[in-house]
Design a protein around this nucleic acid. Structure first.
Length: 583
RNA sequence: GCGCCUGUAGCUCAGUAGGAUAGAGCAACUGCCUUCUAAGCAGUGGGUCAGGGGUUCGAAUCCCUUCAGGCGCGCCA
């Protein structure tokens, strides 16, 4: 058992309870120790950290939960808690983790952390910085997260932006939780949709050159189609004017979608999101992976022929019906390349596969899950995050989004108008699977009340305090607050106001929040955590002065401020949001 | 018709893998800047957790059902 190696308070407590249960296992006649639930009480008066284990054991032990709790507490108090060793040579001796352990309500065991423990953890955060905030939940396991994957047939719209923000934040969180993460964008460059884009561009091309060509019925009508046609004219002149689409369709299709793809990549980059890898659907065909993945399924006995088509028997894995993979006309279905793509992910050695889709694709989950199970992936290793629609409003009035008519609001337009930080933050203040109202005017004009500024403001405020301190010659420079030396440690011991201790406790909760967000794939938990941390800091700031005549207290509070700043920066970086030093 | 998601304060949403007295922001009202950034703070009011039934020590959370909204149910992509 190693204490103080991570900025964590959960593990220490779990270890202690576990030891107590080991001691009680025999008298209780238990074979094994149950899972230990740890939670943060909603009310600070109830303690800093609590367990419900006693209530969970009532059924097995047939005793009242309070009686069980008493036995556990007794075991902890008599011989479990080891004193924390001195922090380093020359330290001031050991101390207890807990100030008190109490039984409350129906059988909660409430632990209150000692000030010495909190001060020691603060020191750790200051000395180790961001690295103390990384956990090893993932143990380096490889996770692949595929997101956005918009068809390269038009610019990204706001819904894609939401998926991008969520996916990117999730990846950051998974990395912080110790997973080895790859971010991937899947390019649907092989199907009829890109061909339709090519036809649309070709029609515009002919029209621009004075030819009265018909426009494809379901063609893409956005202005960008014409821009691509203009670009082609600029580069090749009238070379294709007298040719048919059959003759030059490939050129138009390739040119068009590649140009769109470049636009998409740029939009994402300007939104602050960069992918590790882009996988082309077409390439899967060219490298024969579609055929070979179907062969692999066939060898496993999951492919059969019926009505002149080939089917994947996904009902073996809980799907509603079997799915066609090769049509009667011999063509592959879209699903066939999806099979190849997901098999390819497995072949690349990922332990867990996370797909982030628009919620309108939810009907696809069972069949993809079937594919992965057929190839041997345990079903809990495949996760789909559904991104619900974004309802775009302007002063409460819905903004029309009709892709067919070509007038839909692009991500770029929103980001240009509102800003990337605000847009991302708003996307991350809601669970992914709940519909989101995004009012452009409110996001922009009520910016003073915008939660993103609330968090950033706390960061900027602390920066300002440090500027002030430097001006007064109190602290040479911000991170030079020497947290190693004994003087700084004595100063920290002066942090004993309720608000100060609350802030430290909040800081210690971070790793739990990250792990929870990683396990549940819910980045918005970080957003809420940051708002809470900023809230208690703002409150503290208004109640207590950081810089005062008391040199030691000033030093202590500057250290606390620095710790908060480290945390705010860490959290904001998870969300892909900046931490400005001035606002 | 079948399936998935959602329903929590006037509005927008959280509610931590079943826990303690259900929270935040906005909106409304009352205070706080000659001292580190008022993009802030302190306080007040606001709830049949859509309705009903069940599971248990304990339910906003799990199960069944009704209602309401959204989205899916092609050999389309």
């Amino acid at each position: 058992m190693v204490y103080l190696n991570l900025l964590f308070m959960k593990q220490e407590v779990v270890d202690i309870i576990q030891k107590a249960l080991e001691n009680l296992k025999v008298p209780w006649g238990l074979d094994s120790i149950p899972e230990i639930d740890i939670e943060i009480p909603r009310n600070e008066a109830m303690g800093d950290i609590a367990t419900t284990i006693a209530m969970g054991l009532t059924k097995i032990l047939k005793k009242s939960p309070r009686k069980i709790a008493e036995e556990i507490v007794d075991a902890i108090k008599t011989n479990i808690i080891p004193p924390i060793p001195p922090l380093e040579k020359g330290g001031e001796g050991g101390f207890d983790i807990f100030e008190s352990i109490e039984i409350a309500g129906p059988g909660f065991i409430n632990f209150r952390l000692s000030k010495a423990f909190l001060h020691a953890k603060l020191e750790q955060l200051l000395t180790e910085g961001h690295s103390s905030l990384r956990t090893d939940l993932g143990e380096g396991r490889k996770v692949q997260v595929e997101f956005v994957s918009a068809n390269p047939t038009g610019p990204l719209h706001v819904g894609h932006g939401r998926g991008a923000a969520v996916g990117n934040a999730l990846c950051n969180i998974l990395k912080a939780a110790g997973f080895n993460v790859q971010k991937e964008f899947y390019i649907n460059d092989a199907g009829l949709q890109v061909k339709l884009l090519g036809e649309s561009v070709f029609a515009r091309y002919l029209q621009l050159l004075g030819n009265d060509a018909p426009f494809p019925e379901d063609g893409y009508r956005g202005d960008y189609v014409e821009l691509i046609a203009e670009e082609i004219i600029k580069r090749t002149g009238e070379e294709y004017l007298n040719k048919s689409f059959e003759e030059c369709g490939e050129f138009f299709t390739n040119y068009a979608y590649k140009m769109m793809l470049a636009d998409i990549a740029k939009d994402l980059k300007d939104f602050g999101i960069v992918f590790d890898r882009w996988q082309s659907e077409k390439e899967l065909y060219e490298k024969d992976k579609v055929q070979s993945s179907l062969t692999a399924l066939q060898q496993k006995g999951f492919i059969y022929e019926k009505d002149g088509a080939k089917w994947f028997s996904s009902t073996n894995f809980g799907d509603d019906k079997d799915r066609v993979v090769v049509k009667q006309d011999g063509e592959y279905t879209y699903f066939a390349s999806d099979i190849a793509y997901h098999k390819d992910k497995l072949d690349r050695g990922f332990d867990t596969i996370i797909d982030i889709w628009g919620a309108d694709h939810h009907g696809y989950i069972p069949r993809i899950k079937s594919v992965l199970e057929a190839f041997g992936l345990p079903k809990e290793k495949f996760r789909v995050i559904l991104i619900q629609m974004v309802a775009l409003l302007r002063r409460g009035e819905p903004v029309q989004m009709s892709k067919r008519a070509g007038e839909f609001v692009t991500l770029r337009e929103v980001v240009d108008e509102v800003g990337a930080d605000i847009t991302k933050f708003i996307f991350l203040t809601r669970r992914a699977d709940s519909q989101l109202e995004f009012d452009i005017e409110i996001a922009k004009e009520q910016s003073a009340e915008n939660p993103v500024f609330y968090v950033q403001y706390a960061f900027a405020r602390i920066s300002s305090i440090f500027r002030q301190a430097i001006e007064k010659g109190i602290s040479g420079q911000q991170s030079a607050v020497s947290s190693h030396d004994v003087g700084a440690r004595r100063c920290r011991a002066l942090l004993k106001e309720d608000e100060e201790l609350s802030i430290i406790k909040k800081l210690l909760q971070y790793s739990m929040v990250v792990e929870g967000a990683a396990l549940s794939c819910e980045p918005h938990r970080i957003t809420y955590y940051l708002q809470e941390l900023a809230g208690i800091f703002h409150s503290y700031y208004n109640k207590h002065r950081v810089i005062s005549d008391d040199e030691q207290l000033t030093n202590a509070r500057l250290q606390l401020c620095e710790a908060v700043q480290i945390m705010l920066k860490e959290g904001l970086s998870m969300l892909g949001v900046s931490a400005p030093e001035r606002m």
